[in-house]
């Protein structure tokens, strides 16, 4: 039997990797991919708790998270296409039109 804390450690390592990826990368698409890593870490956490507590709630929420990740990817990539069409830049530090 694998203890619950092992799953939590793996999931927090994945989450922190995604967080660092969001913070240090320049490319917009890679930042969205790092957000997907963080969502997957949260999913793993939810499913591990759901399995260890004999409850289905965590797995249902994990399903909803997958649906929300799909919506986030669609809208985020559409925004990237719009930005790329107007101005040839996909790096977040060059997109500063809204910056005061």
């Amino acid at each position: 039997m694998i203890p619950l804390s092992s799953y939590l450690i793996v999931s927090s390592v994945l989450f922190i990797t995604g967080l660092i990826g969001v913070l240090i990368r320049r490319n917009f698409i890679i930042i969205l991919m790092a957000v997907e890593i963080m969502l997957n870490a949260a999913n793993l956490n939810l499913v591990a708790f759901s399995s260890y507590l004999d409850s289905m709630a965590g797995q249902i929420v994990a399903l909803f998270i997958i649906a929300i990740a799909a919506g986030e990817a669609a809208v985020g990539l559409a925004i990237i296409i719009v930005v790329f069409r107007g101005k040839i830049a996909t790096n977040v530090d060059q997109i500063n039109l809204l910056k005061w």
């Binding site: 320049r26 490319n27 698409i29 969205l32 991919m33 997958i66 990740a69 799909a70 296409i81 996909t90």
Partner: peptide, 27 residues
């Protein structure tokens, strides 16, 4: 859903925009 739909969407946009590997890829 993830590997079959979302990731294919990501790769599709990556190839559509034809991003080059940049010298400076970190912030």
């Amino acid at each position: 859903i993830y590997a079959g739909a979302i990731l294919v969407l990501y790769l599709f946009v990556l190839m559509l925009l034809n991003l080059k590997t940049e010298e400076r890829y970190l912030h």
